[in-house]
């Protein structure tokens, strides 16, 4: 199998399979979570706090007072990674073309140099947070195999994409095929690992904010 044939498989059959598992998995998990429901809360709400859920979405995305200074690596690393990753994912023109091919939607992309910087920043941030996870005793204690697996799954698309774009190590065709395959791995694993937070993060933040509001600690 030549590199081009591998690429053709990755863009064709491979991508279709990955998307099937991804979409199926996401729907399944969403149904699973939402159909669980909660017990009816019979007590009266402590205070009326409209919008507590929405405010929590914002507040939990910002560091609480004092914490930024106490664990800057976690916050800066987290921000840099997520923003860099989002820019790379959403504003690299070939990625937009992929979305257009699937959905017909498209939007303007950013110059390659900007995306390049974002990707490098995201990759570096991933290594920094890994180092901190390994050296900080509390974080290490809290980490399981799945966390390291999720880290690797996230790194691979960024790294292979970067290497493909810069034509290093192996030729572009093969690297591009590996890049797409790594993304497919990520798609397949996403619904069934902690990476599902991509979908659930704001839902759960809203819920927490809302329920705490009812209990009298609205944000």
């Amino acid at each position: 199998m030549s590199a081009l044939e591998l690429l053709t498989w990755a863009r064709g059959t491979g991508l279709s399979l990955a998307l099937v598992i991804f979409v199926f998995g996401i729907l399944l998990r969403l149904f699973e979570i939402f159909s669980l429901g909660r017990k009816a809360d019979l007590s009266r709400a402590r205070d009326t706090s409209p919008g507590s859920g929405w405010r929590t979405i914002v507040r939990r995305s910002l560091p609480p007072p004092g914490l930024f200074k106490r664990s800057p690596v976690t916050y800066i690393g987290g921000y840099v990674f997520h923003i860099g990753f989002a820019i790379t994912l959403l504003f690299f023109v070939p990625h937009i073309e992929l979305v257009r091919g699937l959905t017909g939607l498209s939007w303007p992309g950013l110059p390659m140099q900007v995306v390049d910087i974002a990707a490098v920043a995201a990759i570096l941030a991933l290594f920094v947070v890994l180092a901190s996870r390994l050296t900080n005793p509390v974080k290490r204690f809290l980490s399981g195999a799945q966390d390291y697996f999720a880290w690797l799954l996230t790194l691979l698309p960024l790294l292979t994409g970067y290497l493909a774009f810069h034509h290093v190590i192996v030729d572009y065709t093969l690297m591009l095929a590996l890049h797409i395959l790594s993304v497919e791995l990520l798609l397949v694993a996403l619904p069934f690992t902690k990476l599902f937070h991509t979908v659930s993060v704001f839902v759960s933040r809203w819920y927490n904010g809302d329920i705490f509001g009812r209990k009298g600690v609205a944000s």
């Binding site: 863009r11 149904f31 992929l98 699937l102």
Partner: peptide, 26 residues
Amino acid sequence: SMPIGPAKAAVGAAVVAGLAAGSAVA
């Protein structure tokens, strides 16, 4: 970078299967 397989049809099928399986779980 565009998909070349039956990606759209496959996703359609996945949505149907996901909804069905999801309903069963619910």
